[in-house]
């Protein structure tokens, strides 16, 4: 699991965009009735099924989900980012995230990136550059600066998630606490 997670959290990701609106809640990312399981393949089958029943068929490994404000609001279920990741989504870009979703995504090694108003449309090719802190719309030739991520989050993402980070360090390293990258 470690290596694939590490690869997924490389500094630059390129993929096709799937664009959705504001306030997509966790029940729409993965309905609660499917979350009482430890089987991730089962989660991927139902990802976004009430919001966009065809997403499952269209999504390709490495694709990037783009959303509006407050993405992932609602429950604390970690199955929401896990389901997206299991379906092949490499990163989520949004105007803003619900805080638990944001933590969960970083903790499982799924980059979650906040940007301002944008003109990204479904099907555009995107590049998410975590190190430079920008999202580039390669189809349109536009660039959107991302909200800088705290250092501890980058350290966790770089490790491939919080499990790997703590397996390695046993505890939080205080040097990771402060400042932007």
């Amino acid at each position: 699991m470690g290596t694939s997670l590490k690869r997924a959290s490389q500094a630059r990701l390129v993929g096709r965009a799937h664009v959705y609106g504001d306030h997509i809640d966790t029940d729409r990312i993965i309905p609660g009735k499917y979350t009482k399981t430890l089987d991730l393949s089962h989660l991927a089958e139902h990802v976004l099924e009430d919001l966009d029943p065809d997403f499952r068929q269209r999504v390709q490994p490495g694709d990037i989900l783009v959303a509006g404000a407050n993405f992932g609001c609602g429950s604390s279920r970690e199955q929401a980012p896990l389901a997206l990741k299991a379906a092949g989504v490499a990163a989520v870009v949004a105007r803003s995230f619900a805080r638990i979703f944001y933590r969960n995504a970083i903790n499982i090694g799924l980059p979650a990136v906040e940007i301002g108003p944008h003109r990204i449309r479904s099907g555009h090719r995107l590049e998410v550059d975590l190190r430079a802190g920008v999202v580039r719309d390669l189809t349109q030739g536009e660039e959107y600066p991302a909200t800088p991520m705290p250092r501890v989050m980058l350290a966790i993402l770089r490790a491939g998630g919080l499990v790997n980070y703590l397996r390695e360090h046993r505890d939080y390293r205080l040097g990771d606490e402060h400042g932007a990258p």
């Binding site: 933590r103 499982i108 919080l162 046993r170 606490e177």
Partner: peptide, 18 residues
Amino acid sequence: VGVGSTDLAAVWLTGKIW
């Protein structure tokens, strides 16, 4: 404060949260 499962596991391990 509400967190997800991995965050909680980290609390079980360290007694701390960022």
